[in-house]
Design a binder for these strands. Structure first.
Lengths: 363, 363
DNA sequence: CTGAAAGCGCTTACAG
DNA sequence: CTGAAAGCGCTTACAG
């Protein structure tokens, strides 16, 4: 008995793992792909497939004995669940689609970090769509990402195209907007007022005594335009708005562009005593340009930026800017979306995270 | 006849779009999710489901008349294919999994841009996994991403853990490594020699006449360590290697850390006449620190970096560094992977993209 | 060129 | 707590 017992075990072992893999024993009609499936796990653990499924997805519904057998089988076989099959059968995908306008801008990678941290625990998979600041691209990416049946969508900004709105509506997927605050209090959104932030930093320049304040903006996305509005309002309130000191171009924001635009600003409005750059990259370029031309910052010209990227605190002079809660925007937006997906819709649907003026040497 | 014909059309239209949506007519046992499916499209176009499928995936196998009817039905119904179902049925997912160590480092977002550009056309979906420089995280992410049955995997660097190697092997998925070159010529890889790049920039310092050259490194990933090896070799070849001028810490590279390490370097090796920082961020921090302490760069201390991020050309002084072909690494790696997936394996499996020394004012 | 039917690998009411 | 069977929405040999 003992001997034949151990022989049998050997035979089984050999059979399954070496000479005749299960896949080959399947009928010839099979389209099997030689992958280890849940059925294999169930067979190995001597339980029904659905019990194996439960042991994985709802372990509390399975007795400890069976659960452990299934877990052992999973380890023995190196089983990996097939997401496509799970998603198809269960009607939810556990994917969250994120649409951001750029990956080369630290603002959005910080947002992504927050999103990841909020979602990693929940077993969600994040699908990143880089729209490159293009509505057409955003439509295309949303269409592609919707094919993955996301459980939720994270959007940057408020101004989506009509088609995007339609697609989102007919997909009936929960959506949270990031980085700005909508007028409609019913919309899910996490951000801060771009307008007020623009107003605040311009006000800071006014308080410091600057009067001929220019504005340098690029990309011209909605956030830049709102900051520009805040700038205008602050100057109007102070009675010193002059549109000839506004320089707006649609090219992407870079240090090189900031350097160039500083030159153009000085050429078209030589009396400028301060410049508000719509983001830090432009401000860095402007300051480097000043240094090369021997223009003292801030003595001859004050320069400020927006976002408070890491270099702002370290440059010489250090750069006055608005610190934006990017990581938290991502984190809170993802958390809000999770709640919406899981059905417990919070009372507060619009979260204002605010911003902080960082007054430094450059002004 | 004419009248009844148009009445019929109206009736059909009203029925399907307003009063009795198809989903509600389904038998009560149905688990239908009210989504528009291929079957709906086929019904609308009066063709078999499989013909509708072919019209989408293999249009050349369908007569023009039917193809147009199907396309019209897709538009009428706003049909979006279900990726999970397609992937499950077809055995390929059209997803490419990318594992990178960081999203906040421009090096890797540049790589991603190259990957996107190479893959967008082919209808691939990119799954981004941020490993945060952690082997454990890399294993976990790979496991998760493998559940999506990727058609291919893009890896950063050469030194993966044993488990990662095993998972990759048993998944039998094509893999391309990025950023460095393996010894094994059979492995698919796109990059350049980190060792040679480190050697080259150190050699540049030697040629410029510097002799007491320090090394500042952080993160201590494999690429940093290879650059350090290149640095050592160059100094040994010149007979001026001194391990007391090496400062290696495992913290993430930031401007702030560069500023701090510059201070520590000067404290432990005050005779340094040049410092090679293992990347540009550290070099920026080092230079800012020098400026604050009134240390002239390069007169009293030369500083160089690695990667040639945009600020390097603009800072004052501009920063000597090694320009790395990040975008092209991503683009060529993705292209190579596509070829491997589509079965036409190229003769050249290891692509050396080289690097460029950018000699500027800081040395 | 077109189609009926089986199958991909899971999950889930429904029973027991 | 456990299980047999149907179903999720596609694709694909196999026929015609």
């Amino acid at each position: 008995m003992e001997i034949s017992g151990s022989l049998l075990e050997c035979a089984i072992d050999v059979n399954q793992n070496h000479f005749m893999p299960i896949a080959q024993q399947a009928p010839s009609k099979s389209r099997s792909r030689g992958r280890v499936t849940l059925a294999d796990v169930a067979r190995q653990a001597s339980v029904a497939t659905m019990t194996a499924s439960r042991a994985i997805s709802h372990p509390e519904q399975v007795s400890q004995a069976l659960r452990m057998r299934v877990e052992q089988a999973i380890r023995d076989l190196g089983y990996l669940p097939n997401r496509a099959a799970r998603s198809l059968a269960s009607a939810h995908s556990n994917v969250i689609a994120v649409l951001i306008p750029s990956l080369s801008n630290a603002v959005f990678t910080d947002i992504l970090a927050g999103i990841q941290d909020a979602l990693d625990a929940g077993g969600y998979q994040v699908l990143i769509g880089n729209t490159r600041y293009s509505d057409a691209e955003e439509e295309k990416l949303l269409g592609i990402n919707l094919q993955s049946n996301p459980d939720g969508v994270l959007l940057t900004g408020l101004s989506q195209s009509e088609r995007v709105r339609q697609m989102l509506q007919s997909s009936r997927v929960p959506v949270v907007s990031m980085m700005d605050l909508p007028d409609d209090p019913q919309r899910l959104a996490v951000g801060f007022s771009q307008f007020e932030a623009g107003y605040t930093i311009t006000r800071h320049l006014l308080v410091k005594g600057y009067r001929r304040i220019g504005f340098i903006g690029a990309q011209l996305d909605e956030r830049t335009l709102k900051r520009a509005e805040g700038y205008r309002q602050a100057l109007r309130d102070a009675g010193s708005h002059d549109p000839r000191r506004e320089l707006l171009v649609s090219d992407p924001s870079t240090i090189a562009l900031g350097a160039e635009l500083l030159g153009r600003m000085l050429a078209m409005a030589p009396d400028c005593d301060a410049v508000f750059c719509c983001n830090d990259d432009l401000a860095y370029g402007a300051i480097y340009q000043c240094q090369r031309r021997g223009i003292a910052v801030p003595a001859r010209l004050a320069v400020c930026g927006f976002n408070d990227l890491p270099a702002s605190a370290w440059m010489n002079p250090s750069v006055t800017t608005i610190a934006t809660p990017r990581y938290r925007v991502g984190f809170e937006a993802a958390t809000l979306l999770r709640k919406a997906i899981e059905g417990d819709m919070p009372a507060v649907r619009r979260i204002d995270l605010g911003f902080t003026l960082m007054a430094r040497e450059s002004t």
